[in-house]
């Protein structure tokens, strides 16, 4: 059911930019050759908001929201800062364990635009390579039903509150960004994530890492963003 949900959601989200790409192709031809920029010229700044994290809450057990700021260096390199928050409050039906957390997360890195050419220095779309370093730090609660001692008898339970946890990870991925109106863009990205470090408690570790997802050594994630560009030229 979760896999089917992934397919439906991602197909829907991915279909939109393709339609817009066709509409913008005429604009692209008109713009071609008009603008020339050096590799490190500061062309614009963008702010964006991601809605994928909210959409994911329809399918999964956690939600996140994030905003990003980047600068456009020569239509090629986009140094980026992303700040978000993730939250989760869930109970496992099988084990009866309750887990709750809410924490901010941060990413820094850059996007590299593969679609800029001499002929099209500023096309209305961008195929991006994405590189990020990310980290989070926060608190979580865990409540578990008692476990029974098989030899001595008796029970022991777990009730942890405000446990401190932190983690860092790296992300690489690809993305696509399309211009939909003057200074407005839409874009998606999919990212492969690899955990670098995590702080474990004596009795627990984070189950859901805000900004990363379920606490495994690697994972996938995505964004679907609305972007407003502030041109400098």
């Amino acid at each position: 059911m979760r896999t089917l949900g992934y397919i439906l959601l991602s197909s829907l989200l991915l279909a939109l930019p393709l339609r817009m790409e066709a509409q913008e192709s005429i604009q692209s031809k008109a713009d071609a050759g008009k603008k020339k920029s050096s590799f490190f010229s500061l062309n614009s700044m963008s702010v964006s908001a991601d809605i994928f994290g909210y959409a994911y809450s329809l399918l999964g057990e956690y939600t996140s929201g994030e905003a990003a700021v980047n600068v456009n260096l020569g239509n090629r390199l986009y140094p980026t800062v992303e700040i978000g928050a993730g939250w989760c409050s869930t109970t496992d039906e099988t084990t009866g364990i309750k887990y709750k957390t809410a924490a901010p997360y941060y990413r820094v890195g850059f996007d590299y635009n593969f679609s800029t050419t001499k002929e099209k220095p500023n096309p209305p779309y961008a195929i991006l390579g994405i590189f990020r370093f990310a980290w989070t730090s926060g608190k979580y609660d865990v409540q578990a039903p008692p476990i029974t001692d098989p030899v001595w008898g008796g029970e022991a339970s777990l009730n942890l509150t405000d446990v401190k946890g932190s983690a860092s990870w790296a992300e690489i991925g690809v993305g696509l960004r399309m211009k939909i109106a003057k200074n407005f863009h839409m874009g998606w990205s999919i990212r492969y994530k690899a955990r670098i470090s995590q702080k474990k408690g004596e009795q627990s570790q984070m189950w859901y890492i805000p900004g990363y997802g379920i606490n495994k050594s690697t994972g996938f994630g995505g964004t679907y963003s609305f972007i407003y560009e502030i041109p400098f030229k």
Binding site: T90, D92, T94, T95, I97, Y99, V142, A144, I147, D149, A156, S157, L158, L160, Q203, S204, Q205, W207, N215
Partner: peptide, 12 residues
């Protein structure tokens, strides 16, 4: 009492 994960439960 150690919490492994939501799916794996707790162990001692």
């Amino acid at each position: 009492v150690y919490y492994q994960s939501m799916e794996c439960g707790t162990v001692m």
